[in-house]
Simulated assay, not measured.
Amino acid sequence: MPPGILKLLSLLDLPAFVEGRYLDVLAANPLATALSPRLVAGGNRLRDVFLDPAEQAMFPQQERAAAALVAGFRESVGTDVDDPRFIELVGELSLASPLFRELWARHDVGVLSGSVSVQIDHPQVGQLVLNREKLLLSGSDRVMLVIYHPDAGSDAAEKLRMLASLASRATLDR
Rank of each mutant, 00 (worst) to 15 (best):
A54W: 00
R21S: 12
D13F: 01
V40N: 03
L23Q: 13
L51F: 05
Y22H: 12
N29Q: 04
L14I: 00
L51P: 06
S36K: 09
L14S: 06
G43T: 13
S36A: 14
A27R: 07
V49P: 06
R45G: 11
D52Q: 07
D13W: 11
V18I: 03
F17T: 02
D52R: 09
A16D: 10
D24C: 00
R45W: 09
V40K: 11
A34S: 05
Y22S: 05
T33K: 06
L23A: 15
D13E: 15
G42S: 08
Q56C: 03
A16K: 06
A54D: 08
P15M: 06
A41T: 06
G42I: 02
L11Q: 11
L14W: 14
S36R: 01
R45F: 06
R45K: 14
L12N: 05
V18F: 02
Y22W: 12
V49M: 08
D13C: 11
L35P: 04
L46H: 07
G42M: 05
A32P: 09
R45A: 15
V49N: 03
T33N: 00
L51T: 04
F17P: 05
T33R: 10
L39M: 06
V49E: 05
A54Q: 14
D13G: 13
A16Q: 11
F17M: 14
E55S: 15
G20P: 07
F50K: 11
R47T: 11
F50I: 10
L26W: 00
A16P: 00
R47H: 06
R45L: 15
L14A: 09
L39A: 08
L31F: 03
D24S: 12
A16H: 06
V25N: 04
E19W: 12
D52E: 15
D13Q: 14
T33E: 15
G20C: 07
P37F: 01
D48G: 13
S36N: 15
F50V: 14
D24T: 01
F17K: 11
A41E: 12
P15K: 02
F17L: 09
N29H: 06
L35I: 10
S36M: 11
G43Y: 03
P37C: 00
L35F: 06
G42H: 01
A32M: 03
R47I: 09
G20A: 12
N29L: 03
A41C: 14
A41R: 04
G42R: 01
A28P: 03
D48C: 07
G43D: 08
L23M: 10
Y22V: 04
N29E: 00
E55T: 15
A32Y: 03
A16M: 04
L26Q: 07
L31G: 01
A32S: 08
A27Q: 10
D24E: 14
A32Q: 05
N29K: 03
L23P: 07
S36G: 13
E19N: 14
A54G: 13
V40A: 08
D48N: 08
R45I: 15
